[in-house]
Design a protein around this nucleic acid. Structure first.
Lengths: 222, 222
DNA sequence: ATTATAAGTTAGATAAGTCTAACATTCATA
DNA sequence: TATGAATGTTAGACTTATCTAACTTATAAT
């Protein structure tokens, strides 16, 4: 059984790798996301290595082992199921769920989480649009949807791009469109199929050419 | 904000006082219910006294202050609401809820517990028949019911006695009837209104005279 | 009233997880 | 390729909560 602290380290490693797009991490990076000092992380890393949850060598990079990854995904599953519970059943706002789920994710009970999953109707995505791993730790892929097929007034999360030419990505960056960003469809122009989206309070126009190159998934809102 | 450990000490003090019927406790008693050593408890007691949650003097008895009692009741409220959630919504068995609720009761979020209360329909008793304190920390009294008015096949908890003569209490003790004990009504004889109850696997006959002196409340069962 | 036993206390040790300060290594680039 | 900045490591200290072993006080029974 892992301590809450150990669980947080493993989870942070997955989040780092997802955000950075690489599978390994450094002591300073990890310390940064955990809001701890590098010296502290260094000590814990030796412990996690001892327990076979990470591999790393002195002055080297940190990588999760498959056991470590499995544990981390289990914690992420719990986090996202609790977020869904808070949002769907208890009427929490989208931005309030994370903090409480950070605590709930460490409750130890297999039955609890499996029954919660069932109670919620085996949801595939959490209120932020993030995919919820299933009980086997698989990230079932949610059907791919292009931004060009969104509906007015609904909310989505950007999940990927079809085209990864630098110039295109730079343009997306300029528009503020990054993986993980959420937006709401304010309107769609019928004559050119351009889409007006609201993202972080700003309104942006997306042409149909761009929308056809960006993947999204629905996000639940209150 | 109290640590999980501190919360457990306060909660244990309330439970001890309820079970013993007295308001104070000793170091050894407290160590016993917490499964810790007296020396450990002694150290923590100084800390809780410092924080004004208990009063006690060297070699004296331990008493909760009103602040300490308030905190403890809040934790008990959380524990019982979570038990109700697990039982009513997630299909846990009566005997499975306690262990998980021990973990859930330490989650810190006022909104969480108030919304949970609402989601559950402001229940008055938990699956064990224990009264759930309300958000103000009041123990609303559940309507008194005599054992003589129970219904067949239903389950109840013994909550008190109308008569507290020693001889009567000794007799109850012999029957295994103590406050907090749960039983199921196996059958009621119509000609003498005697009640056959099942308690801890054993079947016992209760006369209508005895049943008229014992208070009970309904317990929920699966 | 004395004394054995039960209850309570103290001191010092241990483990987990954190910190600071000092030191070591790696890497980018001038 | 030498070197300064960024990154990583170590040692030692601190806090919380626990323990054991030794000691002190209270209590109950002869």
């Amino acid at each position: 059984m892992l301590s809450t602290t150990e669980e947080n380290y493993l989870k942070a490693l997955v989040h780092l790798s997802v955000e950075k797009g690489i599978k390994d991490a450094g002591t300073n990076e990890l310390a940064g996301v955990l809001h701890l000092k590098p010296a502290t992380v260094n000590v814990m890393l030796k412990k996690l290595r001892e327990k076979k949850y990470v591999t790393y060598e002195k002055y080297g990079r940190i990588t999760l082992t498959s056991a470590g990854r499995k544990m981390a995904i289990e914690i992420i599953r719990k986090h996202r199921l609790w977020e869904t519970f808070l949002f769907d059943k208890l009427g929490f706002d989208w931005d309030e769920v994370h903090e409480v789920a950070e605590q709930l994710e460490h409750i130890q009970s297999k039955k609890l989480i499996d029954e919660l999953d069932r109670f919620l109707g085996f949801p595939m995505v959490d209120p932020h649009g993030e995919i919820i791993p299933n009980a086997k730790g698989e990230l079932k892929s949610v059907p791919k949807q292009l931004m060009s097929s969104v509906e007015e007034k609904k909310s989505y999360v950007i999940t990927g791009v079809k085209n990864d030419e630098t110039s295109f990505l730079k343009y997306l960056e300029k528009l503020g469109c990054r993986i993980g960003k959420s937006f709401r469809v304010a309107g769609i122009q019928s004559f050119d199929r351009s889409i007006e989206i609201e993202m972080e309070g700003k309104s942006t126009l997306i042409t149909s050419e761009v929308a056809g190159q960006v993947y999204v998934r629905p996000r639940r809102v209150s």
